[in-house]
Design a protein around this nucleic acid. Structure first.
Lengths: 231, 231
DNA sequence: CGTCCGTTTGAGCCCCGTCAATGTATGTGG
DNA sequence: CCACATACATTGACGGGGCTCAAACGGACG
């Protein structure tokens, strides 16, 4: 875990993150408030209940936002990808855990300072509103995807979403990718159990819709069939 | 359905809605862009797929934000209460339906105009970000509440939420309120079926935890027991 | 090689969705 | 005012999908 100061000029998401809305002078001022940090898989950036002291932009890797219910089962509420923004603005203490799903790099700001920056730089405020609106849309689409549907449907749409993310160019045919999430994490995201997720994957493999390569590799053989199942 | 111009001075939510962030002059300018409208129960303010032309502040009544999956079953993604703000900013077309659950009054703005106002009045932008962050929190808490829990748990927490909303003063004991939602709507919100919702309600009544007064009236007899069941 | 962690597979059971019938409230027209 | 229609709610019977419990399997690493 390193804590260097910021080097925006080599930032991999400088064109698309919220801070891209700033001009050079403003960006420099903002950079002075934050620092760079690396996270190893499993390491947490923020813990539920703790003082909600930081917000951050994700540069590399994947984060998850999670909660735990009474009996200790994990629920994944959102996945965060590079250029994404995390941290609950305005909330005195954090509601959810933010944990790295893979080794990751973030750009961390003290929450208070960031809130002040939002006031000082209206363009940053607008970018934040845009991101927040998007997050809201995604949270709702996850909500719609996760309730009242069968296990296969959930798993199939999950795989489709990953395939789309991994292969931005719309080539209808086979694509291969590695799962960032464990079975348990997929289960926590979809509201299922580990066993059910596993069973649905073998079922899809038996039906020649996907092909598994090790525990993490997925090859989509029949994208059309997969969408069919996901409907 | 009337379409009068705005009268902010008698607005029931003038102190707490997003526009409360504006000073008198700014508010007057914003008021010039919008108009007042009444909705009857079941009437929709915005339909999924349609051009996303409006946004609105709710003055009175309750709205729902819904989607429909392939087989036509409704999913309620959010309930909106007075002072709440609806309308998908930045999206070219609407993703979800917005429908009145009760007779309602809203304050409607052309979306474009409202977006411009957000830029012109930074304080309004900040208020919008605050609201959006809150919506996000609520969407996530619904997501957590609705997945991986039993039917009784869902129904019980739903009743508790309503009781809290109806009775802001924290009196631990019995409170009475009327359901705004039909069984079908409760089911669509919790990801259950009408029959299951009904059964859980009679079950809670048999256990002397609640008492039903007609189809809509609910009397909470044992709040502690209810939280117990909801956990 | 043995341990640890994640994954797979199996067997059994229960919750909840489905289908169907009945009950209740509200409104409408004759 | 009653007959009827309509919409919503309740209750019952039944079957299946997914959770639970349990065991075996596989890869990574010391």
């Amino acid at each position: 875990m390193s804590r260097d100061s910021l080097a925006c000029n080599v930032c991999p998401v400088r064109e698309i993150a919220a801070c891209a809305a700033l001009n050079d002078r403003e960006r420099e001022e903002l950079a002075g408030l934050g620092h760079h940090r690396t996270l190893k898989r499993g390491q947490s950036l923020l813990e539920a209940g703790a003082d909600n002291t930081v917000s951050a932009t994700l540069l590399k890797g994947v984060l998850k936002i999670t909660s735990f219910d009474e009996d200790g089962t994990e629920r994944i509420l959102s996945l965060i990808h590079p250029a994404g923004f995390v941290g609950e603005l305005f909330a005195p203490s954090a509601h959810y855990d933010i944990v790295a799903l893979s080794d990751a790099e973030v750009c961390v700001f003290p929450r208070r300072e960031y809130e002040k920056a939002l006031e000082r730089f209206p363009s940053l405020g607008r970018a934040a509103l845009r991101r927040s609106s998007n997050e809201l849309l995604e949270a709702r689409s996850l909500l719609a995807a996760v309730t009242g549907r069968t296990a296969v449907q959930k798993v199939a749409s999950f795989l489709l979403a990953l395939a789309r993310a991994a292969n931005p160019h719309e080539t209808g045919h086979a694509s291969r990718f590695d799962l960032v999430l464990t079975r348990g994490e997929i289960a926590a995201l979809l509201g299922l159990t580990i066993e059910t997720v596993s069973r649905q994957l073998t079922r899809l493999e038996n039906e020649r819709i996907i092909l598994r390569d090790g525990a993490r590799g997925i090859l989509i053989q029949d994208a059309a069939g997969l969408s069919q199942v996901a409907r």
